[in-house]
Every structure is written in C-alpha cells, then in structure tokens.
Simulated assay, not measured.
Amino acid sequence: MTELTSQKQAALAAIADAATLDALEEQRVAALGKKGWVSLALKTLGGMSPEERQEAAPAIQAVRAEIADAIEAKKAALEAAALEAQLASETIDLTLPAPAAPKGSVHPVSQVMDELAEIFADLGFTVATGPEIEDDWHNFTALNMDESHPARAMHDTFYFPDAAPDGGQMLLRTHTSPVQIRSMQAIAKANPGGAPMRLIAPGRVYRSDSDATHTPMFHQVEGLVIDRDIHLGHLKWTLETFLKAFFERDDIVLRLRPSYFPFTEPSVEADVGYSNENGRRVVGGNGDDPGYEWMELLGSGMVNRRVLEMGGFDPDQWQGFAWGLGVDRLAMLKYGMNDLRAFFDGDPRWLSHYGFAAVDQPTLSAGVGAGA
C-alpha cells in the first residue's frame, strides 16, 4: 500500500503539471490504461487470499477513482483555457453584412400567369381550373367537334388506352376549353338556363409537337364571357384592354381577321402590330413606321350556339365570346426570349437570367387604366 500511495502522489502531481491535453492523456494511459500501474494493481487482487483482497481492493479502487477525478477536472480546465485563448485571438466584425443566401427565382411562365390573373381580375374575371386528364366529350364533343370532325386531327392528341366512364376515350387535354364547358355546366346547374359569367382558364395543355416554337407540354389561357346582347366589339375591346395592360403600352393595335374554329361562330384571328428593334419584336408602335408588321397572336370569336347548348345555356337568351392564347409565347414576346424549349430545360443559368425575384417582382404599374 505504501508503494501505491507514492505512485498516486506522483501521478496527481504530474496531472496537475500537465500543460496540454496530450500531456494529460499520457498520464491517463500511464495510470488507467490497460498496462497502467492502477490496472496492474487491480490484477494482483486475483492472487490474494480473501482476507487480503478484502483489505486491498477498496484502497486500490479509491486510488483509481481519485486519479480519474483529477484527470477529468484537469481536462475541463485545459479545455476552458483553450476556448478562452481562441476567443481572445479570434474576432468577428458584427458590422459586416451577412453573406448572401442562395435564392430561387420565379419562372417567367409563373410570372406571366400572375400578371394575367391580375389584369383580368381588374376586369371582373375569375380564374377557373379543371383536370389535365380529360375525356374526349369535354375536350372535343362539347366544343362542337364530334368523332368524325376533321378539327380533332389538328390537335395531335395524347390518348390513354383506358376508356372514359361514358365509353369514350381519356386523353391529356389539348386546350383549356374543357374548363369553360365544366364551368358553364356548373353555372347552368345552379341557374337553369344560364347566367352571366366571366372567367379565364390558365393551365398546362399537351400536344404531340416539338420544335423551337412548340413543345409537347405548354401553357394556355382561355377566356370566356357570357352575357346578353354582346358582340365582337366587346371581344375586341377586352383583348385590346388586356394587351395594353400586359405590355404596358398605349399604342397597341389589334386587327381581327375572319377564320374558323368549330367552337366559335363567327371566328376571328387576332393580329397585333409590332416593330423590329435590334432584332427583337416589340409589340406596339406607329403603323406608319418602316418595319411595322402584323403578327398572329390568338384565336377568338363568338361562342357557337351548339357549345352554349352543351354547356346548359339557352342560345336564344345568351351570347358569348371566347379566346385562347399561349402563355409561353406571351412571355417570349414580352421578355425577349427566342426558344420555347428553354422554358422546360431547367437550366439554372437561363432561370437566373430570365427569372424574377420571389419577393421583388415587377408590377403592372398601369393596371387596366391605360386601356379603359
């Protein structure tokens, strides 16, 4: 026991003098390691008689606990001293601005969708939505395109193999016009015979086509107004008012040309005047300027009587007009983009260039006042 006491005193002194954590670790290994003197002392208990073991074991365990406590206390003191020295040597300038955090951006299509909703809300329109997987009755038949109608071939439709509940075909909608039919039916159900309505139907649509100006999936917005005693003049005013607010210019000129769509009669194509500025099409301008041209922008017309009937409206009491245009092309025209496919590539470089800040988005300063 005298030798054990001497070793303990020497170890405690060495622990107290340890200047680093590495030096302290050496003392721990020397005393409490597998070959440390305390561990060796504990192994001698096996060769002792019960009486000797009863006397020696508590003394050795007491030494072991005292050494362990001393090491733990010294370790805490050394770590505290190291932290204090680090804090004294390192400084943080709290006046410096924080590093910029990575930020996402609003896709141009989402931006234009928001602008459309804002403009038409000012004109009293509501936003309507519907399923992207449609049946051919809502997508074609209710829009005056029966099974043999040649206009069905114009849409390059993606069909599903499963049959619709009515025995027809299921498909990815080729336009958002089915939303108009569903909305008309809902209004007619609540108000037999029909009621005034104004809506826009923005959303994704699908056609089997792909090039610089066509993609298999793209975005459309269609508008529908149903009321009494309305005509093409109301349609033209609505479109001009929208375009003036969207492009934020007063010199927007719209030209209507006779056309054909199965769901409208009469049908008109709407052309907008534009000029070329540094290789870019800029909507608006003076029609007398050199280089002023017309560009087909959208299709429109008065709602066909058969479509009104399919929607549950009495065509002798109600008239309507409708239009449809591509949201992606509107974005291309307004923000100077030249390839529709880039909208769907997900290239972060393109998005960082053409995207909009999620908080600080541009606003339509003129609203619809410029066209009213």
Rank of each mutant, 00 (worst) to 15 (best):
T213Q: 02
K189H: 12
R182K: 13
Q180R: 04
M197G: 02
Q180A: 09
G233Y: 06
S208C: 14
S183V: 01
P216F: 05
R198W: 01
R207K: 11
F218S: 12
L224A: 02
L224E: 01
K189E: 15
E222F: 05
I230M: 08
R228K: 15
G203Y: 11
E222G: 08
L199M: 15
S210V: 12
Q185C: 03
S208I: 11
L224C: 00
V221T: 13
D227N: 14
S208G: 08
D209K: 07
R182V: 04
D227L: 12
A195M: 08
A201Q: 00
V205N: 07
S210E: 15
A195R: 05
M197N: 02
P216G: 06
D227P: 11
P178I: 03
H231D: 13
V179E: 00
H231V: 04
A212E: 15
E222M: 09
L232R: 00
R182G: 03
M217C: 07
H214S: 10
R204D: 03
P178D: 03
A201Y: 01
E222C: 04
V179I: 12
P196C: 02
V179F: 04
P178K: 06
Q220P: 10
L224F: 10
R182N: 03
S210W: 15
R182W: 03
P192F: 09
D229W: 01
V221I: 14
R228H: 14
R228F: 03
R204P: 00
S183C: 03
G233H: 02
H214Y: 11
R228W: 09
V205C: 12
G223D: 11
A201C: 09
L199W: 01
M197A: 04
F218M: 10
D229M: 04
P196F: 04
L199K: 05
R198E: 01
M197P: 03
I181P: 00
D229P: 04
R182D: 00
V205E: 10
V221C: 14
A201H: 01
A201I: 01
L199P: 00
S208Q: 14
G203N: 05
P196A: 07
H231S: 12
V221R: 03
V205H: 10
G223V: 13
I230D: 09
G193W: 07
R204Q: 10
G193D: 09
S210M: 15
H234I: 01
A201M: 02
T213W: 00
D227M: 13
P178C: 10
P178G: 06
Q185H: 10
R228C: 05
G233L: 06
M184W: 09
Y206A: 02
M197I: 11
A188W: 07
H214N: 10
I181D: 00
A190K: 14
E222Y: 08
Q180L: 07
P202R: 03
Q185I: 10
A212G: 14
Q220N: 09
L224S: 02
P192M: 10
D227C: 13
S183M: 05
A188C: 12
A186S: 15
A195E: 04
A188I: 09
G194R: 06
E222D: 13
K189Q: 15
A195L: 08
K189R: 15
S210L: 14
Q220V: 06
N191H: 15
F218L: 12
M184A: 05
P178F: 04
Q185A: 09
G223C: 11
P216Y: 06
A212W: 13
A190F: 05
R204E: 02
Y206H: 05
Q220T: 02
H219S: 07
A190R: 10
S208D: 15
I226E: 04
D227V: 13
